[in-house]
């Protein structure tokens, strides 16, 4: 058994929260670059050029890419043989608070959804813990902006709706999101599980780099079909029209009940951020 001090988790979370907010991952940058080469519509090109220029400027000046520095979604994969000498949730939240202060990030969290008092330090984070083999802890921080989060959906489809039903559901969610979700979007889809599980799968799907194909050929093909359909919508960057509505689609599936086909779509903007470290 390996003992890991909670401070090591806090330090990593603080670093990752800042890093994710300032540096756009290379897979997203490459996808924007490719989109720019293929985008024929002029208002759309102007948006893509600005997105590209913005990523350079954020990194060069150490300023967040987007002012919505997000709700901190923190995914921990904890090895069975790792022992944390303290409260893991407290460790994560102190890292988020420090990252928020040291990185000059925005305090975007309210303590209560109806009474809406800002907590002032972007805590608490949404923490998801999974137990895995080994004695390490893999920490991923994915700050999630709410312009796109607000356009996300869960729907309980019927088993007979099948893949067609899932495709129609995803396409209509992105179509309805229009320019509000900051397209070009990255789309995470969760199918199967239960009502709640599907939504978490959709969020986890967003963590997969765009240049990494789905390991299951059936879902890899479904992702290609979805991406093609989304880019045929014509919504375009910022909703100004154009070929580039989505940069990528990622699907995760899970076993489900004989009576159900839960489906969730988690829409993410072109600033789809995540940073990972192994402690």
């Amino acid at each position: 058994m390996r003992i890991i001090a909670p401070e090591r988790i806090s330090d990593a979370v603080a670093r990752l929260f800042i890093d994710a907010n300032v540096r756009l991952p290379p897979d997203i940058r490459a996808a924007v670059g490719r989109a720019l080469e293929n985008e024929p519509w002029r208002p759309a090109r102007r948006v893509l050029e600005t997105i590209d220029e913005n990523a350079d400027e954020a990194e060069a000046r150490g300023i967040p890419i987007c002012q919505d520095t997000g709700m901190a979604c923190v995914f921990l994969e904890i090895g069975y043989d790792a022992h944390i000498g303290g409260d893991v949730y407290e460790a994560v939240n102190s890292g988020v608070a420090r990252g928020c202060a040291e990185g000059y990030l925005r305090a975007s969290i309210v303590r209560d959804p109806l009474r809406r008092e800002n907590t002032g330090d972007n805590t608490p984070a949404a923490v998801y813990i999974e137990l895995v083999p080994g004695d390490n802890i893999k920490i991923t921080v994915a700050p999630k902006g709410f312009g796109s989060e607000n356009m996300s959906r869960v729907k309980m489809l019927r088993p007979s709706d099948g893949a067609r039903g899932v495709i129609d559901f995803v396409v209509s969610a992105v179509e309805d999101a229009g320019g509000s979700a900051c397209p070009p979007v990255v789309v995470g889809v969760g199918v199967g599980g239960s009502f709640d599980k599907a939504a978490l799968l959709a969020k986890r799907a967003l963590l997969r780099p765009l240049d990494e194909p789905n390991p299951d050929p059936y879902y890899a093909e479904l992702e290609c079909e979805l991406l093609e359909k989304l880019n045929a919508l014509g919504t375009g960057p910022m909703g100004f029209g154009g070929k580039t509505t989505a940069l990528g689609v990622s699907v995760l599936s899970a076993p489900t009940h004989i009576a159900g086909l839960p489906a969730a779509v988690n829409i993410s903007c072109h600033v789809t951020r995540h940073a990972t470290e192994i402690v």
Binding site: I51, N54, E57, I63, P64, R106, G145, M238, V271
Partner: peptide
Amino acid sequence: VGGAGALLGGRVLRSELVAFPELGT
């Protein structure tokens, strides 16, 4: 352009608080 906050913030020359400071951002 949504998500272009670094670039747009760079075009701001001055910022003065006008009202509701308790609202933070």
